[in-house]
């Protein structure tokens, strides 16, 4: 990868702060501003303006009961009668199978514009709601395949991949290494009940990002 210099980065910053730069270019910008104070300052300035654009949306009254549903987490219950957790069956062969399913999905999506129904993609969300990557969830009969991709704004290093169900104990599914802001992992979890998050856990115990897994 060719390192970008300041003029290259300045060209990309408007799209970067508007959150519409694709994964690779975004990672290049992150790598640059990590070590460049001047460009980092420019990011702060342009971000203020990008944030202001959100004020264009008019206020709107939410549907009746919205506040109660937010506060009671009724939302989760409504969608989550039967998400499952974990007994790690994780085999290399199984992981490879999931990745091939995901690949098929991507190809299929590109061709027809519609996704294979068995795969659902959820965002991996970091501090401040930044989307740092995604998890492709493949629903099989007795197990759930998980394929994790991280491509943005996560510090390099090794992270434990932890399944954190609400009703049963957390379980370490594996480890993912992030280098140059990117990394990928795939594994299998057996199904259990209730909502669950997939978290990345640093050595310090910090959880820099997590994904809310879809529930069925």
């Amino acid at each position: 990868m060719r390192a970008l210099d300041c003029p290259d980065v300045r060209e990309l910053l408007p799209e970067f702060v508007l959150g519409v730069l694709d994964g690779d270019a975004r990672a290049d910008v992150v790598a640059h501003i990590d070590g460049c104070g001047a460009c980092r300052t420019r990011v702060t300035e342009l971000s203020e303006t990008a944030d202001a654009v959100l004020l264009l949306a008019p206020e709107a009254e939410p549907p009746p009961g919205f506040q109660r549903r937010v506060l009671s987490h009724d939302f989760e219950r409504r969608r989550s009668n039967r998400w499952r957790t974990v007994k790690m069956v994780g085999l290399v062969a199984a992981a490879a199978a999931i990745l091939s399913v995901v690949t098929v999905r991507v190809i299929d999506t590109a061709r027809s514009g519609s996704a294979v129904a068995a795969v659902e993609t959820v965002p991996m969300v970091g501090d401040g709601g930044t989307t740092v990557g995604q998890v492709d969830v493949v629903d099989n009969d007795a197990s759930v395949g998980l394929a994790l991709t991280v491509n943005y704004a996560l510090a390099d290093g090794a992270y434990r991949v932890v399944l954190a169900p609400q009703s049963t104990p957390r379980e370490v599914l594996g480890t993912v290494t992030i280098a140059d802001g990117r990394g990928a992992w795939a594994g299998i979890a057996a199904e259990t009940r209730g909502p669950a998050d997939l978290e990345l856990v640093a050595d310090s115990g910090a959880v820099p990002c997590s994904a809310r897994l879809p529930v069925r």
């Binding site: 949306a57 008019p58 206020e59 939410p62 506040q67």
Partner: peptide, 14 residues
């Protein structure tokens, strides 16, 4: 939630 719900919902709806 009371303070921000109209703004949040308005942006989401837009």
């Amino acid at each position: 939630v009371e303070r921000f719900q109209r703004r949040v919902f308005g942006l989401a709806l837009t």
